[in-house]
Design a protein around this nucleic acid. Structure first.
Ligand SMILES: Nc1ccn([C@H]2C[C@H](O)[C@@H](COP(=O)(O)OP(=O)(O)OP(=O)(O)O)O2)c(=O)n1
Ligand SMILES: [Mg+2]
Ligand SMILES: [Mg+2]
Length: 470
DNA sequence: ACAGATAGCGCC
DNA sequence: AAAGGGCGCTATCTGT
């Protein structure tokens, strides 16, 4: 609601500033769109159509989505054609109207983009830029409302008689992960992105609690094991956290905080237990670092890095090089996986799940590059899925958890959620963490063990709602 | 009017 | 947008 109010306020301000224009063009706004294509029109007709589209755009922007909906791409295209040079084209050759393109065209309040020059007067151009900026915001919020809020409000028929949701878990992915649908419970907004507090809608039954347990740095641990990377395994053996380390490298203010003694990189023996860790104090920064770590690990190039993170090509190259130089075995292992894919047309996971990669020999460099990156990702992501599946089998069949009244609700790739009576929560939580940390069954002894050469660390929390369990 | 593709949002 | 990987949902675009 706060977010919607913010946008409405923005649009209201815009309305005040542009009301006169909208009113002055009431006639054109009322007039239906010409059925002719822009190409068939005379110069005068085309000019009138563009004026019409522009003022309709303004009118819609100030009305917000409730009445007429927000302008669609065709309308935006008609406003920007034909004087504006298209930035990019769709597959079928139409000028692209994607969000990055629109943002670029509209620019910022201080510095309008090229759209400003697409109109007869400067004033008209600035108005159009303001409208497009407003529309990009409204559009993003609309997507959130449509794909997360409205389904949970029951607008698409996915609720049962008690207003509960029962998403399906599917076995349909290339790597062995599960997916979830109707609703997708594996992509609900989380943490700072959960601006509507959607996760508060997911609650335990009365008398019960949710227990959430998530592996720490799961795929990096598996990479260290499979590639047999000495530096990574040593780091994990002493409680190392690569996402935190990367966050420190990325943000000088975290470095300062650590130098100041008011923050700790990782938990280590003999350190003050009251000093907060980077992981807890800088969670948002650590999540950005996580994205960077996995992006590089799974084949992101310096070019892509420079673009996405807005850094120089030099800095991007140094970053990728440093990442691999500190993990030489990973570089070699990835090359072996590409060779394996070329030789056998497939790669395998820890438990032997096999993914065919026919495009590995494609003459299309785009398709081939994709297959090469899949060849280095699938053994890791797929092995992580293997391990989580093993853990889920143990959780589902565990006699103690059953006695305590706990049932498994969901997995989110490296996270397992169970629900049961509050009074047994502590023991159930310890049990869940233990099962996830020791998901393999030893053939001879029948004991649950961890067969990897790295520890499987598990973070866990419990709460009445999913929102609180973080 | 329909079906498949695309765009843009979210998660791991 | 674009040479990180793996997904799903909704509205819209696009071709028939
Ligand atoms: N942008 C992302 C996010 C996640 N993953 C994969 C690798 C992760 O290991 C796994 C699980 O996601 P988490 O968010 O739980 O990440 P980690 O387990 O690595 O970190 P944390 O210690 O915060 O749980 O999903 C990925 O490939 N790309
Ligand atoms: Mg994790
Ligand atoms: Mg996770």
């Amino acid at each position: 609601a706060a977010e919607i109010a913010e946008v409405e306020e923005y649009l209201a301000k815009y309305l005040r500033e542009n009301k006169a224009i909208v009113e002055a063009h009431a006639a054109e706004i009322a007039e239906p769109k010409s059925s002719k294509s822009l190409l068939e029109m005379s110069v005068e007709e085309r000019e009138r159509e563009r004026t019409k589209d522009r003022v309709k755009l303004l009118a819609k922007a100030v009305q917000t989505a409730e009445s007429d909906g927000i302008p669609n791409k065709v309308e935006l295209r008609r406003v920007t054609e034909p004087t504006l040079q298209p930035v990019a084209f769709t597959k079928t050759g139409m000028p692209q109207m994607s969000t990055p393109v629109l943002k670029m065209l509209a620019g910022s309040e201080d510095k309008p983009g090229p759209l400003v020059d697409a109109f007869k007067t400067r004033k008209e151009g600035e108005e159009a830029c303001t409208a497009v900026r407003a529309l990009v915001q409204v559009s993003a919020i609309n997507t959130l409302l449509e794909s997360f809020i409205m389904p949970l409000q029951g607008l698409y028929g996915i609720l049962d008689a008690n207003d509960r949701v029962h998403g399906s878990l599917n076995m349909n992915t290339e790597t062995g992960r599960l997916s979830s649908r109707r609703p997708n419970l594996q992509n609900q907004p989380a943490l700072e992105k959960d601006r509507y507090n959607i996760r508060r809608a997911f609650v335990a039954s009365p008398g019960n609690t949710l227990i959430v347990a998530d592996y720490g740095q799961l795929e990096l641990r598996i990479l260290a094991h499979i590639a047999d990377c000495t530096a990574m395994k040593e780091a994990f053996a002493t409680g190392g956290d690569f996402h935190s380390r990367t966050a420190v490298n990325m943000y000088s203010f975290i470095q300062d905080d650590i130098a100041n003694g008011t923050c700790l990189l990782e938990k280590e023996a003999g350190s003050d237990p009251n000093t907060p860790l980077v992981k807890d104090k800088y969670g948002a920064e650590r999540r950005k670092a996580k994205t960077l770590n996995f992006s590089i690990a799974y084949g992101k190039t310096a070019h892509g890095l420079a673009k996405d993170w807005d850094v120089s090509m030099k800095e991007a190259e140094d970053t990728v090089k440093a990442w691999y130089d500190s993990r030489p075995e990973v570089r070699d292992w990835q090359e072996r996986m590409r060779q394996e894919a070329r030789r056998y047309g497939a790669v395998c996971t820890l438990l032997g799940r096999r993914r065919p990669l026919p495009d590995i020999t494609s003459k299309n460099s785009g398709a081939r590059g994709r297959a090469e990156r899949a060849a280095i990702n699938t053994p890791i992501q797929g092995s992580a899925a293997d391990i989580v599946t093993l853990a889920m089998v143990e959780v589902a069949s565990d006699a103690r958890l059953r006695e305590l009244g706990y049932t498994m609700l969901l997995q989110v790739h490296d996270e397992i959620i169970i629900e049961g009576p509050i009074e047994s929560a502590d023991e159930a939580q310890r049990r869940l963490v233990h099962l996830m940390g020791h998901p393999f069954r030893d053939e001879s002894s029948g004991e649950l063990v961890n067969k990897l050469t790295v520890e499987l660390a598990v973070d866990s929390d419990k709460a009445l709602s999913w929102y609180e369990a973080k």
